[in-house]
């Protein structure tokens, strides 16, 4: 099964999760997701997701000047984002266990 289709629905959750502890700029977030096992995540999708979460008021951003190359825009999660993360996690868990249950029945 193509995981990229699955990923679309949960990328918000994944991005919020990797920003939970440390702020990060776009490529940072991409690397963290890949390090966490989401190898198929597309760069552009992550950047788009960051913009959407930002526009939805769940992230704030600040620019850090860089000596060489363009400045880096860091994103950090705010209270709204944390609330959404907690809520989405519950949704995901119940969804995942529901699906697990269904798959168990199939296997049985």
């Amino acid at each position: 099964m193509d995981t990229s289709q699955l990923l679309k629905g949960v990328l918000d959750l994944a991005v919020l999760a990797v920003l939970r502890k440390d702020d990060g700029y776009g490529y940072d977030v991409v690397r963290r997701l890949r390090a966490g096992g989401l190898n198929d995540v597309g760069d552009a999708s992550v950047y788009g997701t960051l913009r959407r979460l930002y526009n939805a008021g769940m992230l704030t951003s600040y620019v850090v000047p860089s000596e060489e190359g363009p400045h880096r825009k860091y994103y950090s999660i705010n209270e709204t984002g944390r609330a959404r993360l907690a809520e989405s996690r519950e949704t995901w868990r119940s969804f995942a266990s529901t699906l697990d249950g269904l798959l168990e029945e199939v296997a049985a």
Binding site: G26, Y27, D43, Y47, R51, Y54, G69, K73
Partner: peptide, 17 residues
Amino acid sequence: NEVAEIMEDVEAHVAEL
């Protein structure tokens, strides 16, 4: 302004890449 924000991310991304 939205394009400017996106390009800010993308420029850093492409430059680093």
